[in-house]
C-alpha cells in the first residue's frame, strides 16, 4: 500500500525539508520501516529503543490517533494519510 506521510517541521531535517513523503506498508509498523529505509534516522524519533511508539509523539492514520486504535498494527489503506504530530512546547 502506498500512503502519504505528513512530516512535522521538527523532523524535516531527515526528509531534506519535504513536508509530505510517500511510504509503503499495510500497517503503521511497515510504513515506519519504509520511512526509515528512505530517510535513515527518522524511525528513532518516532519509536523508542524497544520499538514502541514514543509517548510524546502521536501518529495519526486519517484523523485517528493510533494509540486508540491498534498502535503499530493499525492498518494503513492505500492512499491513507499518516500524520506525525510531536509534542512542542513553544509559546
Amino acid at each position: 500500500m502506498s500512503v502519504s506521510v505528513r512530516i512535522p517541521t521538527i523532523l524535516r531535517t531527515y526528509t531534506s525539508g519535504s513536508s509530505e513523503v510517500k511510504a509503503e506498508g499495510a500497517t503503521l509498523r511497515e510504513v515506519i520501516a519504509s520511512l526509515e529505509s528512505s530517510y535513515a534516522g527518522i524511525a528513532a524519533r518516532i519509536l523508542d529503543e524497544s520499538g514502541k511508539l514514543r509517548r510524546f509523539v502521536n501518529v495519526y492514520v486519517g484523523d485517528e490517533d493510533v494509540r486508540f486504535v491498534e498502535g503499530l498494527d493499525t492498518a494503513t489503506a492505500e492512499g491513507a494519510q499518516v500524520s506525525i504530530i510531536p509534542a512542542v512546547a513553544g509559546g
Binding site: P8, T9, I10, I85, A87, V88, G90, G91
Partner: peptide
C-alpha cells in the same frame, strides 16, 4: 492550550 514551533502550531 496552544503551542508553536517554527512554522507549526497546535
Amino acid at each position: 492550550w496552544g503551542s508553536i514551533y517554527r512554522f507549526d502550531g497546535q
